[in-house]
Design a protein around this nucleic acid. Structure first.
Lengths: 163, 163
DNA sequence: GTCATATAGAACTAAAATAGTCCTACTTTG
DNA sequence: CAAAGTAGGACTATTTTAGTTCTATATGAC
């Protein structure tokens, strides 16, 4: 129902891979083979992650990529933002006439609140957890407190979520 | 960063409109003109909402649509699910070899948890609130407790979210 | 009974976003 | 200076999404 793009999912995979071997400098090709993704794709993603500051890069011979900061300090929001951009304000801002009928804008305001709630959830999830390396000792993230067990439906375009 | 499709947004608009005039039977054409959306589109959406049980319909002369149940009993998840489907399990279920490398699945599990957290947030938001008709008396929904004020970034494809 | 006014449902078309590839330039080290 | 890397942009193909149209069905008024 709410989707994360395939590329964002791939990016998470790559970051998780890097998180698993901290300090090691990996090339795009290595990460591609380790994750099973196509090399050009991995390369493209790493470039973008670099631009967004999530990974460090070294050029030239023996170059490669490194996590930009400890996995514990990278949250799901960071990844989402890096890959999909803060997107943000669209037409509504300029064409007031088109969307600012009373109920419409109320709806808009409400969605915004929904969004904040979601961001909040995502801020609590670190790459460490995403990578399945969660520090057992730390307090379980807010997410672990008993939810109503609804069927999961985030779908990463095409590939994931067995159920 | 997380997107809701335009049609889902439209659907919310339509439902909000219906919520604003409870008991009145509105035709697709009326709702179209009230919301400013194209008539065929509104019609299509209403059909789907009907199939999903969110609106009641009456055919024939003087027919039209009515909210399926009180606005207070329709949540954002209901709307999302109705419009975008529970989507759910994709390739990963069948092609285990492709996505069940260790870290991959860990990532999958984590996303699933994220998703549950999001659903939980959405369950608390009723159509009443989305329509801006929120009962002032009731306890403010979980969403109203002071969030870190991050920039909002749910984008309803193209049209909305001024900021 | 039949005509006007509605919804129901499916098929089709068009547009836009996503995903994926490729090519050229720049950097570093042996 | 050659080999092994990353940087970045342009381009193509695919998939989703959005939107329209057409046919069938139901209801009530005359």
């Amino acid at each position: 129902m709410l989707r994360i793009s395939k590329l964002t999912d791939y990016a998470t995979l790559i970051l998780a891979q890097l998180a698993g071997q901290p300090g090691r400098r990996a090339t795009a090709a290595q990460l591609a083979s380790e994750t099973g993704l196509a090399c050009p794709t991995v390369s493209k993603l790493l470039k973008q992650l670099h631009r967004q500051g999530l990974v460090q890069s070294t050029r030239g011979l023996h170059g490669g990529y490194l996590l930009g900061r400890p996995a514990a300090e990278i949250s799901a929001v960071n990844i989402l933002d890096a890959m999909e951009g803060p997107v943000a304000l669209t037409e509504c801002a300029s064409h007031e006439s088109h969307c600012c009928i009373e109920p419409t804008c109320a709806v808009g305001r409400a969605w915004r609140r929904v969004n904040l709630a979601i961001r909040r959830s995502l801020q609590d999830i670190t790459l460490l957890e995403l990578a399945g390396l969660g520090a057992g000792g730390a307090a379980p993230s807010a997410l672990d407190r008993g939810f109503p067990v609804a069927v999961s439906t985030i779908t990463v375009r095409g590939r994931r979520e067995p159920l």
